[in-house]
Design a protein around this nucleic acid. Structure first.
Lengths: 202, 202, 202, 202
DNA sequence: GCCTAATCGAGACGGTACGTCGAGTCTTGTC
DNA sequence: GACAAGACTCGACGTACCGTCTCGATTAGGC
């Protein structure tokens, strides 16, 4: 449901191999379009022109627009590499900072929201499997922290790690998208950490 | 930039008046489409058929799809009527419940996210003026509560009411959209209230 | 199939009578539009504005666009009043001059050609009954002259009056329409008379 | 201002070539519609269905309805290939027969009259450049004959070849359109030749 | 050093939706 | 009843974008 198989990365043999640099050029152009005009500005014709490439060359790499958008939103290297740190507050802040660093990129937030919209059509996987997969590491890290905190008596017993995670993602994503230019970006996660930490007190 | 002027709501003018029922029928059909298939399922041709109406009749009322979607997301009666209640916790819960009640409607959340996506295109008002307007009451109610709480020493001095509000809306909206059928809906605002209340402690 | 019955000209009794001047104002506006932009420029909305009248007021008088166009092309007083004159050549010239005087009006020629085009649609009377009716007088006058000429030995026996008539109308109409501005209008029927007279020689 | 540039007829260019058969299928369907119902029956949606083609495919070949109609009226191979023949009368008959053969086709006459009507709208070329171009050969052939006849003393000095040509076209076209089914078609040009020949006598 | 097979640019193509326009009808309130 | 105003249906228009396809021309391997 994502990147099409091809010469790049496969053990292919016959035929002309794909130009590996083309992938990056297309992605860069797509990110620019998404960042500047959102999902509706991402036209494949425009994208092809920007990348100096033909439309079929794009479709050779991604089967459809949702696939490309999904890759921008959640593809590439693991966006949320786990890294447990001693202090609970620090650990939570670190998870939130990862979420913020990811979704604060305008292309990524536009792609993420676009993936949601395009994923609403009947029959599509919902929520997008890639999103679930991508967030899994961060979600589980947070869950582990909370459970550990509960075990050590540092966190109240009825704290809901999943709700907490969704609250953080929703808040970060929404602020990034909604308050585009009229209000300051939510660059500082500290208030969010404050609120959440307080909410975890036993 | 929203509803086109017309008989409905105007002082009696010349000409055949618009059929006021038509507005409601179209809106009901549009809500159904949005709730079931999201923004991409909202086709004007299908909408016209469902409403037993011709396409031009829809365009006579809303200039474009964004206008219609905006009205569904934020139009109609004030979705967040202010009603201050004694206890701070109760008051905050009440605001959050209003937000939840609004965005928990699948048509409304689909329209709200659609408004964001369609509002990203160059030249469109972003964020949609209607959204800002509609949320103003609730936002100011929350702000007043926080200020009052600060004055009475019940709330820490650096609490950011706007950040709080966006966190709440983002969390509610995101959960409603993202966890459509795979996880339970975020029907209970109590955890959110818990977290926030704790975060307000001086 | 033409003018709708109404107060004007009927023995009507009840209700407010139609404003008789309105008919002329509408017709004048329609002629102007036809003359300047042809059939496609004759929009009822524009027509109504020009005439200072509402669209239903037009439809109260003519059931449809073809009806209005037909009236302009062939309506009103008999456009080809018979008036036999002694000399055969003079008589023929007179008929042709009548045809020319009628079809040389740009509004009339546009209406006539428009009537043909709109009359081609399946199920419509073809050729338009009004055209046949209007031309009948002139056609029969020409026929009578030719027959008379034959009887007197002035015209060859196999002369076809109907073909002659169609040739004249077609030539006059086509020249008027086709050579709008690139070539001189066919204002002088003398060459046509010359040709035809010679063709009638026994 | 006519046929859009495309693979057909060009020097081999890049890209998928147009299916050359598609052009013919569309034209055949358009001719059928024109012949049966005139200009108003030529709907692009119906045309697309008949040709088993999508609407954009038609617009890829002709920019608008007038362009398509013009091509049917005057496009394709030269409809009036000059071929001078000895006898003046034979030569003139030959030109008229060419005109008759062309305009006697119901699709062509419908298209020709349609081109006139659609060409009247403000800003359009009038008369259609294609018509002028297509008829040029025949017009000049007739003109050459007349001049030659004058030089040889066979034709009166003040004969107007252009008027003659327009008379012939107008007569042929008008009879074909006007007398669609109520009177016999003007299949025999002999009477027209008779008249014209006599009119040319010195 | 050919041969094969996939890539690439270009652009046609079907499909589907968009937003607009004109014709003709209908429904108000006013005269 | 006529009339102005304008809502309404129907059907067509021309455009836009998506994803597929078909060309000719490259461009690597594998033999």
């Amino acid at each position: 449901m994502d990147r099409k198989p091809g010469s790049t990365g496969d053990g292919r043999k016959a035929g002309r191999p794909r130009n590996p640099g083309t992938d990056r050029i297309i992605l860069a152009a797509a990110r620019k379009l998404l960042a500047e005009g959102g999902l509706e500005a991402l036209r494949f014709e425009v994208l092809a022109d920007m990348a100096g490439v033909s439309r079929p060359t794009i479709y050779r790499r991604w089967a459809s627009k949702p696939d490309l958008v999904n890759e921008i939103a959640y593809g590439g290297d693991d966006p949320f590499p786990a890294r447990p740190i001693g202090d609970l507050r620090q650990a939570i802040r670190f998870v939130f900072e990862q979420l913020r660093d990811h979704y604060a990129q305008p292309d990524v937030s536009a792609a993420a929201i676009g993936a949601i919209v395009m994923g609403q059509k009947e029959g599509a996987a919902h929520p997008p499997a890639l999103a679930v997969e991508a967030e899994r590491t961060a979600r589980e890290a947070l869950r582990a922290m909370i459970e550990d905190g509960k075990a050590r008596g540092l966190v109240r017993g009825d704290a809901d790690a999943d709700a907490l995670f969704d609250i953080a993602v929703g808040a970060i994503l929404y602020r990034g998208l909604f308050s585009a230019d009229s209000r300051p970006r939510h660059d500082d996660v500290e208030p969010l950490v404050d609120i959440v930490m307080a909410g975890l007190q036993p």
